[in-house]
């Protein structure tokens, strides 16, 4: 069952009652890669991911996940994938410790349950019933159960929704350590900073198709985009879009005799690129087309 890619999708289609959710999607994810799937609600992200997880049947297309067809999942295959679903619930009357220890019994190659509980920061909540956990703690329990089986491939469907910034940073560190250990990770998220921080590559889905696919710093030609240089001259702010920011700054420094007041150089953020890709009106920072005359 050894293949070069962890996930291979060709021409995937799925419709619900005549409404197309996934419309000819192609995707390759390499072993050990952290891949983020972005897209607006209703773009087909969850449908795609749940087909890969074995929850939904596809209409058409070739899908291979860890060398097997997820439409015919067996226990051995399920033991090699970890799933953190978008919605979590159930098992209300059981404690964190009981649940994690119990679920560990499902896997042939489970991690140490206590170590997993500690790794998601629930050490102090070990004896707390799921019913009494906060939303963020509950999500971390989901993650604990997802990584418990020591999966080769981990699906994370909007894992940090409802986290505070500190919890999100801790979660990122956890995911990075899993990735460093060689786990392939498929992540869907609405947080672009999360995708930028964690993902090796990002795929943007709209209307059931992948419209852009690249590393976070190159997505949608982001690295080719012109830089925005801002500075202050004669007490007035100046803005210039240029593909040669270094030359511009050198000229400015020469003309102004040293430090350039209020100098900033920025590239479009991942969010700017993303919004452009999904056809939303871009944020004001990049829509400024009123170029100040260059000196």
């Amino acid at each position: 069952m050894t293949t070069t890619t962890a996930i291979r999708v060709r021409g995937l289609r799925k419709a619900y009652a005549g409404v197309t959710a996934v419309d000819g999607l192609d995707l390759d994810v390499a072993h050990g890669e952290v891949f983020a799937l972005l897209g607006p609600n209703g773009a087909g992200k969850t449908t795609t991911v749940e087909i890969l997880e074995g929850y939904r049947r596809r209409d058409v297309g070739e899908v291979s996940v860890l060398g097997a067809d997820p439409a015919r999942p067996d226990a051995g295959w399920r033991a090699r994938i970890g799933i953190v679903l978008q919605s979590s619930g159930g098992h209300d009357e059981l404690s964190v410790g009981e649940l994690v220890h119990h679920f560990a019994g499902y896997y042939p190659d489970a991690r140490d349950p206590d170590e997993v509980i500690a790794s998601v920061g629930l050490d102090e909540k070990r004896g707390t019933r799921a019913r009494h956990l906060s939303g963020g703690q509950r999500r971390r329990l989901d993650v604990a159960l997802g990584i418990l089986g020591n999966p080769a491939l981990l699906f994370l469907d909007e894992p940090t929704t409802g986290f505070d910034p500190e919890a999100r940073r801790e979660f990122w560190a956890l995911i990075s350590s899993l990735a460093d250990g060689g786990t392939t990770i498929i992540l869907t998220t609405h947080y672009l900073d999360e995708a930028e921080h964690l993902a090796d590559r990002v795929g943007v889905i709209t209307a059931g198709r992948v419209v852009a696919l690249d590393t976070p710093d190159r997505l949608g030609g982001r690295d080719q985009d012109r830089a925005v240089v801002r500075w202050i001259d004669d007490g007035r702010p100046h803005t210039e879009h240029t593909s040669e920011p270094t030359a511009l700054i050198a000229r400015l420094a020469q003309r102004l005799g040293g430090e350039v007041p209020g100098l900033t150089v920025s590239r479009p953020t991942l969010e700017d690129v993303y919004l452009r890709l999904i056809g939303e009106p871009a944020t004001p920072t990049t829509s400024i087309e009123t170029l100040e005359p260059a000196p």
């Binding site: 560990a104 019994g105 190659d109 489970a110 991690r111 140490d112 349950p113 170590e115 997993v116 500690a118 790794s119 998601v120 920061g121 050490d123 102090e124 990584i147 020591n150 801790e170 979660f171 560190a173 956890l174 350590s177 899993l178 460093d180 250990g181 060689g182 786990t183």
Partner: peptide
Amino acid sequence: MTTPTLRSGERRIAR
């Protein structure tokens, strides 16, 4: 809360 570190197969219980 501890800093999360978890490496694949770092420490496992023989079960």
